[in-house]
Amino acid sequence: MLALLIFGGGLAQTTLAPALRIGNVTPDIPLILVVLLALRRGPEVGCLSGFATGFLQDTAAGGFIGAQALTKTLIGFFIGQLGGRLWVREPLVQIPGLVLLSLAEGLARYLLLQVFHFPGAFGDLMLYIVLPQSIYNGFLGAVVVLTLTTAERLRGGIPWR
């Protein structure tokens, strides 16, 4: 189930994300999935799901294989570590939280690629790609969390933390 979810998440970026495009901005669905899995299942699942979805993204995108795998592995691991201490039921936390995480991921990826001489202007990348995507991720992530919380409440299960 978990493998399917991770595979589906990686797949969603090439299938669902273009359909969710607003202007030139698409959400980073695997990142949202990694964060959600890490919060629920801890650092190991966060780390593995980050690696797998990032790897799938790198493979599908045809860029540097390993770049997104690395940043998402880190994100998954650290969110998994912090999971127990985070209160993410409120949209006021979810939206800025995901925006910040997306920004951090974008920044980390940029820095990593700089080591490998990636030719891209920092300002343009941040302004036109990373920042709009981060904001989109924030809102989409909040919608997903709220949907999951409502679904769990209706089923009478454990509420989303």
């Binding site: 650092p43 190991e44 780390c47 593995l48 980050g50 690696f51 990032g54 540097f64 294989i65 390993g66 770049a67 795998a69 690395l70 592995t73 880190l74 691991f77 570590q81 990593l112 490998f116 001489h117």
Partner: peptide
């Protein structure tokens, strides 16, 4: 947990290094 993290990061860095 940290072993897993280091392994994953290692694979990523190896792949990136080999490519560059």
């Amino acid at each position: 947990q940290f072993g897993l993290l280091v392994a994953a990061l290692g694979v990523c860095l190896l792949l990136l290094t080999l490519q560059t």
